[in-house]
Simulated assay, not measured.
Amino acid sequence: MTANALVSPIPASQPRIESPTAVSTMVRLVRESFAVVEPNAEQVAQFFYGMLFTIEPSIREMFPANMQVQRSRLLRALVHVVQMVDRPDDLVPFLQQLGRDHRKFGVVSTHYEAVGMALISSVKKYAGDAWTDEVERAWAEAYTIMARAMLDAAAADEGPAYWHAEVVSHERIGWDLGVVRVRPHYPVPYQPGQYLSVEVPQRPRLWRYLTPANAPRPDGTIDFHIRGVEGGWVSRSIVAHAKLGDVWKMGPPMGRIAVDRENGRDVLMVAGGTGLSPMRAIIDHLAQWGENPHVHLFIGGRVRQDLYDVQNLQNIASVNPWLTVVPVLEEPNVPGVEQGTLADVVTRYGAWADRDVLVSGSPGMIRSTVSRMLVAGTPLDHITYDPFTVD
């Protein structure tokens, strides 16, 4: 049986999985086979894009000439989906957001079919003896469900595919950090903590995810805190070359990081570097009320310069007793901060089992922090983080 026969065309409605046992089998087969190919992630991604552009050559023009970063983003997305494949309450909203976000590329159903064929062909090639007809059916079912969720969300979205926004200020804080303010031509309906895909004129077709560092304002302006990461084509071009009058494109808001003021639980925030942005936006939003859940914010970095906004947040905490700010540095012998990694320091305080936990930063920081917290006893369903956090 060929991949084409399994996933093309995508059916008009989600395929029925007959029983919980069938769902469990599908999840197990997808995870087990993905674990086999994941050590060859770079080769899988290269083969996937080669196959995709062969099946549907028109898709190539949607992507930048340099595909290196795009390949790593594909694998991060795949890993995230595989991790959530048996958690539909988390996975379906994530896929719906992706579907709405992909409208900016002009994606249509035939593109999803091509992606499905290329994906299954790529996993099959590197799964070796682990690939069977049963595994192929599991991947086809899983992909069809994912694609249908994305297509349905895109079709139902009545908002624009993207917004235009003009750069109205650009402040450099050190050589590798910039704060850029943009004014959208029309208000962007994001919630504090969500992120947006952004395309800048210096790097056309290189869309990157950036997180507003402020709650929505009456004038609609949005601040982005951007660090120029090593190898970051977009982040470095923004920090060094963004100028007043530049017009950016911004896709629909995405992400799950948020604070529920009504559920009665206090909040732990763990932020590394410019991963502070979603936490800052949420705190900005909460500051309009006198009473809130208690928020314990750990801000981490390697050196003092990474704590670029800690004084501002401590000023906010000084007049808002619901907020506690704890700066953390890996650099030794710095007064006034906790010493160690964020994972070290946060778990030193305990398991935080009664808190809602929000984590944001580099993929490595998120992995280490979440892993250590789970070992310490933090319930998994209390932890929220978003997968797209780097250039």
Rank of each mutant, 00 (worst) to 15 (best):
P293G: 03
A281R: 11
E330L: 15
W352E: 02
Q339E: 14
A353Q: 15
G301A: 04
V310K: 04
G336W: 06
I283C: 11
P278R: 12
G290S: 05
L342D: 11
D306L: 11
V337H: 13
T324Q: 13
D284G: 10
Y308R: 05
D284H: 14
D306I: 01
L286A: 14
R302E: 09
S277K: 07
D356F: 00
R280K: 15
L313H: 03
Y308W: 06
A343K: 00
D356G: 06
G301M: 08
W322F: 09
N333M: 12
G340M: 09
L329N: 05
Q288I: 08
P321M: 01
A353I: 07
N312V: 05
V303N: 04
N315M: 05
S318G: 11
R304M: 10
E330T: 12
S318R: 06
R302N: 09
V295H: 01
Q314S: 11
N333V: 02
V337Q: 07
G300W: 00
E291N: 02
E291M: 05
W352T: 03
A351T: 05
I283H: 04
A317R: 06
W322V: 03
T324I: 03
P278T: 04
Q305A: 12
P332F: 09
P278F: 00
L358K: 11
N292H: 11
P293V: 09
P335G: 12
A343P: 08
L329V: 01
V326E: 14
H294G: 08
V357R: 09
V319M: 12
H285P: 02
L307Q: 03
V346F: 03
L342S: 11
Q339M: 01
P335E: 14
P335K: 02
E291I: 12
L358I: 11
I282G: 09
A317M: 06
V295Q: 05
N315D: 08
N333T: 06
N315C: 06
L313G: 07
N292K: 05
I283G: 07
R348N: 15
E331Q: 15
Q305R: 09
T341S: 15
L276N: 03
V295E: 00
M279S: 11
